[in-house]
């Protein structure tokens, strides 16, 4: 396993695209954090209570991820990095050479996954550090509280999950372009369409099926405070009964587990 990890580490660190997409995740996230910090920079949190409801500091650190309306811009780049992890092997026909160097497919699969997760974790730490710096520099009253830990951790895990999804989709589809399309279109197009259909049509209790959308569930896990944006009783316009935070986290990771298990099984079964 150690040599397989060393191989995969050298593989991803010797192509420039790894740095490009990692850098773009940091850059775009940092840019959003900058604009949010700048936008709230002159607000008087103590008088309008915005700190209680929007938690501006958390909003900056998560680059807008802690409220409903802002897409997590770093996630697509993490998805691309994940898709490249397996997709490049098929795109450039190197999978056979890789498998002759490391014939144990179980070892290779998990070595790739571990290295990807390690790399993405590093990227997310950098993202959070840059976003925090934006808050510290441009947001008056910026503060770090323990309440920010949960949404920030889930923000990092949400991005990590995108990477894993891209990885698993590339292993499943054996096609870089297909994996990229899937990892970008599904969470940002397919799920929102399904969500809105269920919301508009209001098919009785069937609207609760929207709870099973993994990407949306993962996205909800970043909300802060969770109840404000996810729970209909809080007065938001979300009409279906939204499961609690813990359930959303479970749905998100179960979705990732399923797609990863499919990719793993097919990688073991199919010809190189």
């Amino acid at each position: 396993m150690r040599t397989a990890i060393a191989y995969e580490w050298r593989r991803i660190t010797t192509v420039r695209s790894t740095y490009w997409f990692s850098g773009m995740a940091v850059l775009f996230s940092g840019a959003i954090a900058y604009f949010i910090a700048l936008g709230f920079g002159q607000s008087d949190f103590s008088s309008d209570g915005i700190q209680n409801f929007l938690q501006a500091s958390t909003l900056v650190i998560t680059a807008g991820g802690s409220i409903l309306f802002v897409p997590v811009l770093s996630a697509p780049f993490c998805g691309v990095l994940g898709a490249m992890s397996f997709g490049h092997e098929y795109r450039y026909g190197t999978i056979k050479q890789t498998l002759t160097a490391i014939p144990d497919r179980v070892v290779l699969f998990f070595a790739k996954l571990l290295v990807l997760m390690g790399w993405l974790l590093g990227v997310m730490i950098l993202v959070v550090l840059v976003n925090t710096a934006m808050g510290a520099l441009f947001l008056d009253g910026f503060s770090l509280s323990h309440e920010a830990i949960r949404p920030v951790v889930n923000f990092m895990l949400y991005n990590l999950g995108f990477g894993i999804a891209g990885f698993a989709l590339a292993a499943t589809l054996r096609n870089l372009a297909g994996a990229l399309v899937a990892v970008l279109v599904y969470p940002f197009v397919i799920e929102p369409i399904g969500y809105n259909i269920l919301r508009v049509v209001q098919l009785g209790t069937l609207d609760r099926l929207a709870n099973l959308f993994p990407a949306s569930a993962g996205r909800r896990s970043i909300y802060s405070p969770y109840q404000l944006f996810a729970d209909p009783s809080s007065g938001s316009d979300v009409v279906f009964h939204v499961w609690g935070l813990g359930a959303s986290v479970v749905v998100f990771w179960c979705g990732l587990l399923v797609v990863t298990a499919v990719g793993f099984a097919l990688f073991l079964k199919r010809d190189a």
């Binding site: 040599t3 191989y7 050298r10 010797t14 192509v15 695209s17 490049h88 450039y92 190197t94 050479q97």
Partner: peptide, 19 residues
């Protein structure tokens, strides 16, 4: 069987470390 932008020496070093 190689990535077009990975330097030749890096391609070989990558394979070398695996064994």
């Amino acid at each position: 069987p190689f990535h077009p932008t990975r330097k030749a020496v890096n391609h070989l070093r990558m394979l070398a470390v695996s064994n």
